[in-house]
Design a protein around this nucleic acid. Structure first.
Lengths: 207, 207
DNA sequence: AGATTGAACGATTTGTTGATTATTCAGAAA
DNA sequence: TTTCTGAATAATCAACAAATCGTTCAATCT
């Protein structure tokens, strides 16, 4: 939580506290301004509007997460399958725990992806870049095989979409979701066609 | 549209017309009753409530669709991959066209899956049964290979979830959705592991 | 000059009232 | 008896008023 001492950060910090305590809708610009010992009007010298403060918070938080994902994607001593596993699972766990410990996060996510549709796209694209890098290296090592890496990354994201939208989880617990993600990942990696049973066996034994 | 001459069917028929013309919310029980030349109260001898009429309409419509799917799943002269393809694509196309030609359908779907959460589950289970039968036969013929058919069917559904929820389509056109579904299906069938390149080639050549 | 304020404005939300509607049920009709 | 009615009831919705809030900007301060 180390804050740089800029005014922008002070505002973001104050808004972060208000948003997570009372929610986005129930927080007024006047309150945030007062927390920063300034007038409401002055906030607009630093942010275009209330939503931009929320977006700044989300961006900051998400960037940390992205860094984490990048590390997982290039973790040494793990094969492509394990790294893909770690990547997809981290994604799921982060979303799950974020909503579990702070129900207000759901409101923020909803508002932002409603009013700033490009934001969700931007997140997907960032993760796709990581995925592409992972697939690229995996192919060079002969672990995966595919025609078009960009397209394949897009398809992996499409196939794991369910685990990115809490609205689709209908009260499923984290263990159940993890079991499902495990299954989907297995399908993606191994496919349905009969082939190299020994490889499948080896993968299972390695767990 | 051949109606059995029962009172229930008459009510369903009248409601179907009203719902698709004016929407679920803007249709009153009094109107439906009047269309059937009966009093509002009498509707309740045949249905527990307004929502149950909507559910009856949806069930009737969906049952026809299910029959169609069952036929596709056992179509002769096609291999498992093609039958799976037909099954998943028919699902997507039906949803897409239904919403395209009748925006009221969206309201109905939303209301029903909101107020009757088990209904969506019931649909998924029905389709899963078809999927299991398809996978079962495919395995017997040596076309697919898997450990647990029930679980695999569940995973196929999880991986194709995106194509069942129009809310996740964000203005994608049908061709784009089809291209994505094609890609996801390829991933599911072929997997990422390098294997039998000739099989992949053959599948592509066959299109 | 540049930074900041806070009153003013329009949009949105909230609260309230009255009307509409889904549902029930005592009794009428068959 | 069984089938149906329609007035009564309670829940929901629509519309309007008041209050609140995001945002702007002319005036003030540094």
């Amino acid at each position: 939580m180390a804050e740089k001492d800029t005014v922008k950060d002070q505002i973001v910090d104050a808004a972060k506290k208000r948003f997570s305590h009372f929610g986005y809708a129930k927080t007024t610009m006047a309150e945030v301004a007062s927390d920063c010992a300034m007038s409401p009007g002055n906030l607009y010298r630093f942010f275009q509007g209330k939503l931009d403060i929320a977006e700044a918070i989300a961006t900051e938080d998400y960037s940390r997460h992205l860094e984490h994902l990048r590390k997982l994607a290039v973790a040494p001593g793990k094969d492509a399958r394990q790294r893909l596993h770690d990547l997809l699972f981290e994604e799921l766990r982060r979303t799950y725990h974020k909503l579990e410990k702070d129900p207000r996060a759901y409101e923020m996510a909803r508002v932002i992806s409603q009013e700033r549709p490009t934001f969700a796209n931007w997140m997907l694209e960032n993760e796709r870049k990581i995925l592409i890098a992972l697939l690229d290296e995996a192919e060079r090592r002969g672990e995966f095989k595919m025609d078009d890496k960009e397209f394949t990354a897009e398809m992996v994201q499409a196939a794991t979409m369910k685990f990115r939208y809490p609205q689709l989880w209908s009260k499923l617990t984290l263990p159940k979701l993890e079991r499902e993600l495990e299954g989907v990942m297995n399908l993606i990696v191994m496919g349905l066609c009969p082939h190299m049973t020994e490889m499948r066996r080896a993968a299972e034994a390695a767990e």
